[in-house]
Amino acid sequence: MKAVLFPLFSMLLFLNIGLFAQSDIPQVTIKTLDGKNFNTAEITNSGKPVILSFWALWCKPCQKELDAFNENYADWQEETGVKIYAVSIDDSRSTARVMPMVNGKSWEFEVLLDPNSDLKRAMNVNMIPHTFLLDGEGKIVSQHTSYFEGAEYELYEKVKEIAGVK
């Protein structure tokens, strides 16, 4: 046990400065809806904020959150230029149903597939929905888990703050 903890604590100390740095998104290869590889480094929005939200077909609150985003997306984009990425953690049980559902719901934002939860693990997501807000440089500025009706307004206040819109 000691043999493990000592290097671990040393490592943490070694990072003492880095600990306070804001985080980038980890670089992980996931998939687009049509099966192409997608490197998460491509999650950018030329200086504007990005909302990154983890969801799945079996998660009802996730869909309610994304429905709420979708309803406001046109207005939000016009005001702040924000871009939304919705990452589905559905595995091979249900990946085939993701695209029909996304289109069936007329969601306007980008949807990505993380079928073996590689990005979910790399971003330390325990439960979904889990939503990250990134600034124009791709740094994570806030994150939130769970969705309750109306939480999108709180999130949008933060988006406006980052985008410098009153």
């Binding site: 943490l12 990072l15 400065i17 880095g18 740095a21 980038d24 971003m123 330390n124």
Partner: peptide, 12 residues
């Protein structure tokens, strides 16, 4: 390099 180091995690 240290300035660029990051530590992330989760607990449950």
């Amino acid at each position: 390099f240290i300035d660029k180091a990051q530590v992330n995690g989760s607990f449950q």
